[in-house]
Design a protein around this nucleic acid. Structure first.
Lengths: 238, 238
DNA sequence: GCCACTTATTGTATATGTTACGATATACTC
DNA sequence: GAGTATATCGTAACATATACAATAAGTGGC
């Protein structure tokens, strides 16, 4: 180990890709950067995250970030991968924000990204709130298929994470229930599977292969006030 | 972001789990720690790795480490995961070595671990060399099933990596050829699959499912000087 | 009441992949 | 050439994945 290497300590941060499902499409929770400089001067949306604290494990940091942003106490988190390209903090807009926010010359940040799946509830912020109201000015859900340019390499991180989600869901489909409401219809769950896999799923095969798994319980409740045959509700039994 | 967090910069290192296959069992390439203090005073085997250099991407560092340890020019590498527990560098033996090797108080090291698959050749070091000769005193292959206690949390990292290998090989069995010799028999390849999956594989099903894939070419060569029917050699066609 | 329209729900046949299992071939040893 | 050890090949049962169509239940218009 040479001396050059030893004297070099990059910053280490943890960023969280928090995914939710609104019944129609996958959403990712993004936060706005602070208001130290006019918003026009930089891309003002980013993944929730922060630098690592002293004596804090990586998983701890991810849990803390997610809990503080969403309020959820024991979220499902999974470390995904590290991003450490020297150029990832070189965008002038990002440099400007970093210097304003951190009041310090930032050379380089190695970030550890985490994946978390989350149910979108009334308590979690909505995009409309972020755009039109003052209630949740700092964070909101955005559809993953139609994202603006984000800070740093956060667009790339989200894309990579979606691939990872696809891979994981193929092995453990049950994890997708983290994103589902407590009561859901077969069509909603199928739509989520389609969103994650990116493929159309046959309705009948889905009923056979998924809906009659032992961990999916049909309820004696049906949709109401719909202009067609009401769909049955189901719930997940762990 | 609070001030406490900003003033804290852990060291960042890259560690590589380099796996090979000797025809019988999986092997991992380990390096000996330097001789600054008597060997008895600390666990003297560790994964090859070092602190991150300035302006060096994580992948670059992994490639450089692997090339410098094995001589292989363009190794297959895959980032696996980051380890950042504050306690991972707290073992007194490890602290002793760090302070001797780095001449600096080490608070904490976040490490990014990489997986690499490699063919074991005559040019790469062997365990016997490491134990009995002076030719390769600093590195050698060790069977993954029978490892001594390693530095830091490197035992844990290797275990996690083996699970990852199992997962990846299930999706892309072709990657296992990175570990195979240029010419191999069906039994050798089967043995590797068994080692990775941890399960017995039926000989006949293996011949059907694997050996007649389009990327496995039978050669007109057979084993020699064996006390039983000679096995055919095959080679991998990318 | 009847029809048009929308979405929900269910079954069957076929193809494909996986597992289980036995027989024969080849080379060496004694 | 009998015994032994490994290599190589095939087939039936079983499980899984895919393709595909008809019926049920609700709404709204006439």
């Amino acid at each position: 180990m040479d001396k050059d290497a030893l004297n070099f300590d990059p910053h280490v941060s943890v960023d969280c890709v928090i995914l939710g499902f609104d019944g129609d499409s996958l959403q990712v929770l993004l936060s706005r950067r602070g208001n130290e400089v006019p918003e026009e001067q930089y891309n003002n949306l980013k993944l929730p995250g922060r630098l690592l604290h002293t004596d804090e494990d990586l998983d701890e940091a991810a849990l803390d970030i997610i809990t503080s942003v969403t309020g959820k106490r024991h979220p499902l988190v999974k470390q995904f991968r590290a991003y450490g390209s020297p150029s990832r903090t070189s965008n002038p807009k990002d440099v400007l924000w970093l210097e304003n926010a951190i009041k310090q010359k930032i050379g380089r940040i190695v970030t550890i990204s985490y994946l978390s799946l989350m149910r979108i509830t009334n308590r979690t912020p909505h995009r409309k709130d972020a755009e039109t109201q003052a209630s949740y000015p700092d964070k909101a859900w955005y559809p993953v298929q139609d994202l603006p340019q984000l800070a740093f390499d956060h667009n790339l991180i989200i894309q990579d994470t979606l691939q990872e989600l696809y891979r994981m869901a193929g092995q453990q489909p049950q994890m997708l229930f983290e994103m589902m409401p407590a009561k859901f219809t077969a069509a909603q769950l199928r739509r989520l599977h389609e969103q994650v896999s990116g493929k159309k799923i046959d309705v009948r095969n889905f009923a056979k292969l998924v809906m009659n798994k032992p961990y999916i319980l049909p309820l004696n409740e049906w949709e109401q006030n719909v202009s067609h045959r009401a769909a049955r509700f189901y719930r997940f039994k762990p």
